[in-house]
């Protein structure tokens, strides 16, 4: 305090600053490259966010099924699994479906802290499990404490966590979030291989395909009604495109869904006007929050111009089945509900 301001020449301060910045850039660059090469060696495919869905690398390979040590090719690399994993952690609901199909009860599930989000039949089949937190931020410490021998992760949502998960237990990353029906079916097959229960999985999938075929048989081929599945929440309404799960299930039945999409997007944000333009003849809506934006729309005259509203073909459906489930059971429930609503007589 007693010291007067030690004023220095401006040139010297600029030099100090320049040197400091240069040093910082240099050291950070070194740290950065060291870090990235380190990760490149271990897994060259861990990618963040976006549309990892566009390049699924998971491969179904029945040949490896009987082997004790099986290299499982998945979206973020290849993981070798030995024996039949019994302590499995599922970081998405569709993996719970796949595990139940394979006759394995997951010991940990990322259930967002809400067990109700797991479709009831699956929840009953699983019995007791430990919640590992939110799907977007599963609690690594809890996962570790469960001492799993296999972790099933979403190849998109959990990409940034992949390295850390791999440290805890062998991790297989597959399409679930933002995956369509076909890709989810493929994920099921790979889960069957990962847990070494290919026969059970094949049997379950055959049964599922038959159930879907039976439903499809009930549907007249000439039905061309424009079906929209939308999720409505407090701040918006998103219509699922033909790349998303529920619409691809419906299309698999020979039904027509809109909107189609130019890009890779699995959802399309809607306004009341764009919904009117889309003109759905049947509208299925899942409500994610108690109050939704679509509630406000319903008082509008525009809303009443939507064909599905005029014809009383607007239905509220369970988002846990239609949007979050994304498994064989979810597909069957969606197909059944849609068939009942579209063809009430049959």
């Amino acid at each position: 305090m007693s010291r007067p301001f030690p004023l220095r020449s401006p040139r010297r301060s600029a030099a100090t600053l320049g040197a400091a910045l240069a040093l910082a850039v240099l050291t950070a660059a070194c740290g950065g490259t060291a870090g990235s090469t380190g990760s490149a060696v271990k897994d060259d495919t861990a990618k963040g966010g976006g549309e990892a869905a566009a390049q699924p690398k998971a491969e179904a390979n029945d040949a490896i099924c009987g082997q004790n040590s099986r290299p499982i090719k998945h979206d973020l690399g290849t993981t070798t699994i030995t024996g039949k994993p019994k302590r499995v952690v599922a970081l998405e609901f569709s993996f719970v479906d796949a595990l139940v199909n394979a006759g394995v009860k997951p010991i940990g599930i990322a259930d967002d802290g809400k067990p109700d989000r797991i479709i009831k039949q699956l929840r009953d089949a699983v019995g007791d499990y430990t919640s590992v937190g939110l799907r977007q931020s599963p609690n690594l410490q809890v996962i570790k404490s469960l001492k799993p021998d296999l972790i099933l992760a979403d190849s998109q949502r959990d990409a940034a966590l992949y390295k850390q998960l791999q440290k805890i237990a062998p991790t297989v990353a597959l399409g679930s979030n933002a995956a369509d029906y076909e890709r989810v079916m493929q994920s099921e097959v790979v889960v069957g291989e990962a847990v070494g229960e290919c026969d059970k999985m094949t049997a379950a999938l055959d049964k599922h395909k038959k159930a879907m075929a039976d439903l499809k048989a009930k549907i007249p081929a000439d039905d061309k009604r424009r079906i929209v599945f939308a999720i409505t929440y407090d701040k918006g309404v998103s219509a699922q495109t033909q790349r998303a799960f529920a619409p691809t299930v419906l299309r698999g039945l020979g039904l027509t869904t809109v909107p189609s999409t130019k890009g890779q997007d699995a959802t399309l944000s809607m306004t009341l006007e764009s919904m009117v333009t889309l003109a759905p003849e049947v509208l299925f809506m899942a409500r994610n929050t108690p109050k939704t934006l679509s509630d406000q729309w319903q008082s509008s005259q525009l809303w009443k111009q939507i064909p599905s509203v005029k014809n009383n073909k607007t239905y509220v459906v369970d988002g846990n089945v239609w949007s979050k489930g994304r498994g064989t059971l979810a597909a069957e429930l969606i197909a059944r509900e849609a068939t009942e609503k579209l063809f009430p007589a049959s």
Binding site: T27, G32, G35, G48, S137, Q156, A160, N177, S238
Partner: peptide, 29 residues
């Protein structure tokens, strides 16, 4: 909207899922 989950948690500011790589990235600066 669908991809937001992942980025939103980063946006609100979280130290979730960070490893030593991240520490080494910031520490020199």
């Amino acid at each position: 909207p669908l991809d937001v989950n992942a980025s939103l948690i980063w946006l609100t500011g979280s130290l979730f899922g960070r490893s030593m790589d991240t520490v080494w990235m910031a520490l020199p600066w």
